[in-house]
Structures are given as structure tokens and as C-alpha cells.
């Protein structure tokens, strides 16, 4: 397990839990990062307010890789603009592309995402596109220069888990980049299941932000993700569709 690293854009990470920072108090971020064991934290870019006393960057522990998203973008052009602004903030060149035209289900616009990925990868960004799990689109994202793909498990913020499980499974099987399950993961058991399937990492935000005790839930997710990863590397045992298979010897019974 020592050498089991997650490689994104040439950088090696030990943690496979990508932590969101939205919808909870800045004061909880440090504890969340620590208890999650997270090495990557997502952020959003918004208009700055004057005279703001607190800045999120002061609450994120040093050494954490920042992954700004392009939320608010409605097409590739807007995503590229937000990504460039994020990079100009001076915290690295990782970017999570998030393009939505639909405000009810917040589903990603896959075709605009491919366009933005191509432009930003050419500009030297490390691009992690949030996507609907479609194999053809995932292949287009690979060709466009993505560093990973981030298929959704369920609609953003829904805590509904691996609704798209079968299709994420296809991406894991067919795509050589890290497949990071993003969005919709609500419980540690769901994160564990994604990892057992061979997902490279899991991203969660709302699951923690809506938990009773945020740092404790961050810790629960960390353990579940580690367990799922270990199970994947160990090779999950086979399933019997019918019948049973005793774990006990089938000889030496105390009968005639």
C-alpha cells in the first residue's frame, strides 16, 4: 500500500478523498481537512466583496492542493474565463470544469465540457472535468487532455449515492485516467462502494455539510474510502448468482 498513489497532472497524492469547502463555516474547514486526511480541496470563484475580513485561503492548511471549480459557467467560454481568473489568483493550475445550463438538476453539459477541457489543457491547466458518465464523452475528454474524469454519482447535493453506478463502472473499465466519483455521494458506504469498484478517488461536499457532526463525518468518509481502496486492491470475492457455497468442510459430519 506504500506505493499506492493517486497521480493527477504529474502530482502524487496519498489521500483519495477530495473535499469540498462549500456550504459550511470557514471555521470548520481546518478540522474537516484534517479529519478527512484530504490533500485536495475544491473552491469556487466569485466576485470579491470589499473589506472582507475573512478569506477562505487563511483557513485551508498549507500543503493542500487547491482545486478551483468553474461553477456558474453556462458554456465553455465562461468556464475558460473563470479558470483563467482562478489561475490568476495564484494557487496553482488545477481546475475542475463544471458547466451547467440546467438549474433544476445541475447536470453538466458534456459537450461544452469537452470544448473547455481542450482549450484549458492547451493552456497548461491540469483539467479535471465534472461530467455525466458517458463513455464516448470520457474518451473525448481523454483526447482533449483531461488529467482525470469526474463522473457524477447522482445530482449535485442530493446525497443519493451511486445512481449512475453501471456507467461509472464502464468508465473505470475503459478509461485509463483516474475516474473520480463526484457529486451525489451522501454516505461513507456509498463512497466505499465507489472505491471497491475501482474509482481512483471520491469527492464529497454536501454529505459533510449536511451531516450532524462535520469533522466526524469527514473521518468516517476517510475510513470508508480507505477501506474501499484496500478492498479493490485486494480483489473483491466473487458473487454467486444462485445457490450457496459453504465456508465449512463438506465432510466429517456427525451423522451416519
Amino acid at each position: 500500500m506504500e506505493k499506492d498513489k493517486l497521480i493527477i497532472g504529474g502530482r502524487a497524492f496519498t489521500s483519495r478523498f477530495i473535499l469540498g469547502s462549500g456550504k459550511y463555516s470557514l471555521n470548520l474547514i481546518e478540522a474537516a481537512v484534517k479529519d478527512a486526511g484530504a490533500e485536495i480541496v475544491t473552491l469556487a470563484v466569485r466576485r470579491a466583496n470589499t473589506g472582507e475580513q475573512e478569506n477562505i485561503l487563511d483557513f485551508i492548511p498549507k500543503g493542500v492542493t487547491l482545486l478551483p471549480n468553474t461553477s456558474g459557467a453556462r458554456d465553455a467560454g465562461e468556464a475558460v474565463r473563470i479558470a483563467r481568473l482562478a489561475r490568476a489568483l495564484g494557487c496553482g493550475d488545477f481546475v475542475k470544469i463544471e458547466i451547467m445550463r440546467d438549474s433544476k438538476y445541475l447536470l453538466p453539459d458534456n459537450s461544452e465540457t469537452v470544448k473547455a477541457t481542450e482549450i484549458l489543457a492547451k493552456e497548461g491547466f491540469t483539467v479535471l472535468p465534472y461530467m455525466y458518465p458517458d463513455l464516448n464523452v470520457a474518451r473525448d475528454l481523454v483526447n482533449a487532455g483531461a488529467a482525470a474524469v469526474m463522473p457524477l454519482g447522482a445530482p449535485i447535493g442530493s446525497n443519493r449515492g451511486l445512481v449512475t453506478k453501471e456507467f461509472i463502472g464502464i468508465l473505470i473499465e475503459e478509461i485509463d485516467l483516474p475516474v473520480i466519483v463526484d457529486a451525489g455521494i451522501g454516505r461513507p458506504s456509498q463512497a466505499c462502494e465507489a472505491m471497491e469498484m475501482g474509482a481512483a478517488a471520491v469527492m464529497a461536499n454536501t454529505a459533510l455539510a449536511t451531516a450532524g457532526n462535520l469533522p466526524a463525518m469527514a473521518s468516517a468518509f476517510r475510513l470508508a474510502i480507505e477501506a474501499g481502496r484496500k478492498a479493490y486492491l485486494a480483489g473483491v470475492g466473487r458473487e454467486l448468482v444462485r445457490g450457496a457455497s459453504s465456508s465449512d468442510p463438506l465432510t466429517g459430519f456427525l451423522r451416519d
Binding site: 469540498g20 477562505i56 471549480n69 482562478a86
Partner: peptide, 10 residues
């Protein structure tokens, strides 16, 4: 002119 900064987000 747009002046932006980082905020919490997923």
C-alpha cells in the same frame, strides 16, 4: 472590471 476571489465550493 471584475474582481474575484476564492469562496467555499464543491
Amino acid at each position: 472590471v471584475e474582481i474575484v476571489g476564492f469562496v467555499g465550493g464543491g
